[in-house]
Simulated scan of single mutants.
Amino acid sequence: MIPINRRLQKVSEYIIGDQLADIGSDHAFLPMYALEQGQIQSAIAGEVIPGPYKAAVTSVERHGYQNHIDIRLGNGLTILNPETDHVDTITICGMGGPLIAKILNEGFKHVPYRPRFVLQSNIQSEPIRQFLQSNGYQIVTETLIKERAHIYEIIVADAGSMTLSSRDLKFGPFLHPQPSKLFVEKWTREIEALQDIKKQLDPIRHQVRYDEITKQENEIKEVLKQCN
């Protein structure tokens, strides 16, 4: 039995097709789990740092999946060959939204065949949605999951088109229209964090930053009003 946390188990529910590419694979737990569940036939696991790469190799060999998972050392999506690799789903998990968006931007030319993206961000998902909208992708679902007191966002996107409002970009087109308890908890925490930052600022000396944070607070409060 592959040891996998609830967060990655939830991510696995959105994997489609025969081949998965998992970027930043962390011991290749997600690809091995998907193979164990019979979801996929093969996988590519990418790591950018030699230490985690070697750990993934060891992990895959220990579980006997070395003939099904190709572990590659390289930067993001650049590990994929657009001529020979035609993966069905690409997962990028456990990173901040800006970093995931950076990986997508820098390596997008390596996936011209338009696979599904399953993107799990730890914070700040707005840059991910901006990238998807600008590059011919449509968000097909989003969800939140809580693990060890942290709330994570999962964004699932297929080839298509969409036009998102500023509120959709920030809060998620599937998440804010019908807010869940986790959504309320996540953004209530964000207000509290912003208020803590404001306490450290002088409203006059740091007026621009202070006003910016106040604007963010008010925007979140406006969205949370619909939850009452």
Rank of each mutant, 00 (worst) to 15 (best):
P112I: 06
F171P: 00
P177M: 04
I197K: 13
I197C: 09
W187Y: 08
Q39W: 07
G74R: 06
Q178N: 12
Q120C: 13
P31S: 00
V111H: 11
P115S: 11
Q19W: 10
T91M: 08
S42E: 01
A159V: 12
C227M: 12
I191R: 01
I69S: 02
G46H: 01
Q9M: 14
R189W: 06
Q37A: 05
H63G: 08
Q124I: 13
E83R: 12
D85L: 06
S166E: 15
I191W: 03
I4K: 05
Q130D: 09
L99T: 13
Q138W: 07
L104V: 04
F108W: 12
P127S: 02
H68P: 08
I123F: 14
D88V: 10
F183D: 08
K181M: 14
L73F: 08
I151L: 09
D202H: 13
A149N: 13
D70R: 08
G136K: 02
E185Y: 13
S25I: 05
T84M: 04
N5V: 12
P203K: 07
L20V: 02
S121N: 11
Q39P: 07
W187M: 05
I155V: 12
K198W: 07
I197W: 11
S134F: 06
T78D: 09
I154A: 06
L20R: 01
I154G: 10
C93A: 09
A43C: 04
E83L: 03
K186P: 05
I90V: 09
G172W: 08
D26C: 12
L194S: 11
L104C: 08
I4V: 09
V140T: 11
P82W: 13
K225M: 09
C93M: 02
G51F: 15
V118L: 04
I90N: 01
